[in-house]
């Protein structure tokens, strides 16, 4: 979903430069069991995966998944909300134990993190203004397309997407835009798209759920064609504690087999994103 941003790169190189100390085998698990609490890092700004609900508490698909994992491990779950850059920099120093925030398990990240389980896939799709004359994806050739900066969506629009994540299904490029505009997040891109077809943007590449949400919030936009690629998303832990990793993998596998995971997906997205169509 969100790839390395510049700040992430900075934070990561900082953490790397200062010699990464890997977690000790079993140490994280011991800490979690001893405390009776699993500290989970997640984003507070990434609806519907994780966000602040009406009661001003964290809620969402990722949050529910994390709570369920905690339940199956027999511990309670405590959330912290550091910035994305801080989380992906690694070197958590025991501030939190697990990340449940829709992280794409790229090769680069696998140098710092273990990914116990892919728990769903996000379809990436293209949104256009309701007035748009485009009827199929190839109509966007030579148009202006927006996407979140340094995201996989931007990479897709620029036709240099590398999905090296474990379990990523294949994809192909459906159109070649003239200009790819970068935005700090998908909402600002939608804000530009809502101004009218071709006023600032002809289309936005983003996650299908975010497009659906914007539509629900009254943005005059629609999805064009089928999803363009699927991105696997995983729970992440720091490298070096295989026992902890196995515990989480077990929990997620259990959720898959008994259908809990699919139910959660339907609850939050209306469809089952836990399997590729």
């Amino acid at each position: 979903m969100r790839h390395f941003s510049k700040l992430t790169a900075l934070a990561a190189s900082l953490a790397m430069a200062l010699a990464v100390v890997p977690a000790q085998a079993g140490a994280v698990l011991d800490r979690v069991t001893a405390a009776g609490a699993l500290k989970v890092a997640t984003d507070a700004n990434w609806a519907p995966q994780s966000f602040m609900n009406d009661k001003n508490e964290l809620d969402g698909f990722d949050v529910d998944v994390a709570k369920e994992i905690g339940k199956r491990m027999g511990v309670k779950v405590v959330f912290v909300t550091p910035g994305w850059d801080i989380i992906t920099a690694g070197n958590w120093a025991g501030r939190w134990d697990m990340h449940a925030g829709s992280m794409t398990p790229t090769k680069k990240r696998a140098e710092i993190f273990d990914f116990p389980a892919v728990y769903y896939y996000t379809p990436a799709a293209v949104a256009v203004h309701n007035d748009s004359k485009a009827t199929k994806l190839s109509d966007l050739d030579g148009k202006v397309v927006g996407a979140t900066t340094t995201s996989t969506f931007e990479a897709y629009a620029n036709q240099d997407l590398v999905l090296d994540a474990a379990g990523a299904p294949p994809f192909k490029y459906e159109f070649k835009p003239k200009v790819v505009k970068s935005y700090s997040n998908s909402t600002t891109a939608f804000d530009d798209l809502r101004l009218g077809a071709g006023v600032r943007l002809d289309a936005v590449v983003s996650s299908q759920p975010s497009i659906n949400d914007a539509k629900k919030a009254g943005y005059p936009i629609k999805q064009l064609g089928e999803p363009v690629f699927y991105e696997p998303l995983a729970v992440a832990v720091e490298r070096g504690d295989p026992e902890f990793k196995a515990k989480i993998a077990d929990a997620v596998q259990g959720m898959k087999t008994d259908g809990t995971l699919s139910k959660l997906s339907v609850k939050w997205y209306g469809t089952d994103y836990t399997v590729v169509k």
Partner: peptide, 9 residues
């Protein structure tokens, strides 16, 4: 400010 209104745009 950045998180509260995010869900509902």
């Amino acid at each position: 400010a950045r998180t509260l209104g995010q869900k509902t745009f």
